[in-house]
Simulated assay, not measured.
Amino acid sequence: MTCSVLVGGGWGDEGKGKCITYLCHNDKPNIIARAGVGPNAGHSVEFNGEKYGLR
């Protein structure tokens, strides 16, 4: 099984979301995980037409 890991060391928009979107559309992964979210990070995920807010 192959594994792709995207790591960002800077603050703000580094383009990680765009890279992940590209990888997801091309590689069709079975599992996608996000880790290391800080207390001020507000992100959302859309899955099967439903939007989930992450904090």
Rank of each mutant, 00 (worst) to 15 (best):
D27W: 08
S44W: 02
G17R: 12
V45R: 11
G49Y: 03
N40L: 06
D27S: 10
S44Y: 00
G42L: 09
G42M: 10
A35D: 05
N26F: 05
D27Y: 11
G10C: 03
G38C: 15
G12A: 07
K28H: 07
G38L: 15
G12L: 04
E46W: 03
G42Y: 11
K28S: 06
P29F: 02
K51Y: 02
L23C: 07
K51F: 01
N26H: 12
G10I: 00
E14T: 14
A35N: 06
N48M: 09
C19S: 15
Y22P: 04
T21E: 11
G12V: 05
K51R: 13
G42V: 09
L23A: 14
A33W: 06
E50K: 11
W11G: 07
D27R: 11
N40A: 02
G36D: 01
G38E: 15
K18P: 04
E46P: 12
H25N: 14
I31E: 13
N26I: 06
G17N: 13
N40Y: 10
C24V: 07
N48I: 01
N48K: 14
N30D: 05
C19G: 13
A35V: 04
T21Q: 14
K51D: 05
N48A: 12
N26M: 09
L23M: 14
Y22G: 10
Y22Q: 08
G10Y: 00
R34L: 11
G17T: 14
Y52R: 03
G38I: 11
G53T: 03
S44E: 02
V45E: 12
N26Q: 07
G53P: 01
G38Q: 15
A35H: 07
V37R: 14
G15V: 03
A33S: 13
E50P: 04
I20P: 04
H43A: 04
D13E: 10
A41P: 08
D13M: 06
A35L: 12
K16Y: 07
G17C: 13
G42I: 07
F47T: 01
P39Q: 03
A35W: 09
P39Y: 02
G42F: 10
I32P: 13
S44I: 00
D13P: 13
G36L: 01
G49T: 00
G36Y: 00
